[in-house]
Amino acid sequence: MALFVSTFVNKVDRKGRVSVPAPFRAALSNQMPQGIVVFPSFTAAAIEGCGNDFLEQLATSTTAAFDLFSPEQDDLNTLIFSSSHQLAWDPEGRVMLPEEILAHANITEQAAFVGKGRTFQIWEPQALKSHTEEARKRALQNRPQIALRTPEVK
């Protein structure tokens, strides 16, 4: 599964085309179809991004976690899968972000690609700065702890 790290700010042209950072493309190079999957975040004014493998894992997880046709499963499927766009990159590594996706994140001239481990987000750069400052304040106050787990060997 792909791993996304770091932050890259790229220009968005008038047609909504933006370069997917080279390390992100490299992380997804083994997947078919070649490209990214994006959908509007339902927790922030940002765009959620991932590879096809993560989207498949998410589909499996929502099916396992909720009863078929439950309101929770229906809500998540509506918010994620019905709003998702599979975007292939062109020979220069660019994708064309749909207008409604750009509008959701208030992205006009620049897009910040933010690595989130198994997924990534795309933000308007100033909104990302505010979000990061708030996250840092919460983390300093709450001091979250995480237990490192050894990956399963297959």
Rank of each mutant, 00 (worst) to 15 (best):
L68N: 11
P23T: 08
E99S: 14
F66I: 01
G51Y: 05
L55W: 00
I107C: 06
E99T: 12
E100V: 03
W89Y: 11
N142C: 06
K137S: 09
F24E: 01
E133A: 15
S29D: 13
L58M: 14
K116M: 14
I47E: 02
L68P: 00
Q31W: 07
T60D: 13
D90I: 15
F81S: 02
T62K: 04
F113D: 01
A45G: 10
A44W: 02
V12R: 05
E48K: 00
G49E: 03
V37L: 06
L3P: 03
F66D: 02
A46M: 10
A88E: 14
P71T: 10
D13Y: 12
E99V: 11
K15N: 11
P125I: 10
A64N: 12
K129Q: 10
P98Q: 05
T119E: 13
R17A: 05
S130N: 12
T108K: 13
E56K: 15
V18C: 07
V12W: 06
P71K: 12
F66L: 04
S83K: 11
M1N: 09
R143Q: 03
L76Q: 04
T78R: 01
A45T: 09
A105K: 06
V9Y: 05
W123R: 02
P40T: 03
V9I: 15
L76M: 11
R25P: 02
A65C: 11
A64G: 10
P23A: 07
D13S: 13
N106V: 00
R149M: 10
L76F: 15
A26W: 00
D67K: 15
A64Q: 13
P91W: 00
Q86E: 12
E134S: 12
V5I: 08
H85W: 10
Q110D: 11
Q31E: 15
K137E: 12
Q110M: 08
S83C: 08
E133T: 10
L128E: 02
L68E: 15
G51A: 09
R17M: 02
F42Q: 10
W89I: 00
I101Q: 06
Q110L: 12
D67L: 13
I47F: 07
A27Y: 08
K154N: 11
T150Y: 10
A45Y: 14
A44L: 04
M96W: 07
Q141D: 12
H104R: 09
E100A: 11
P23W: 05
T63I: 04
T60P: 00
V20I: 14
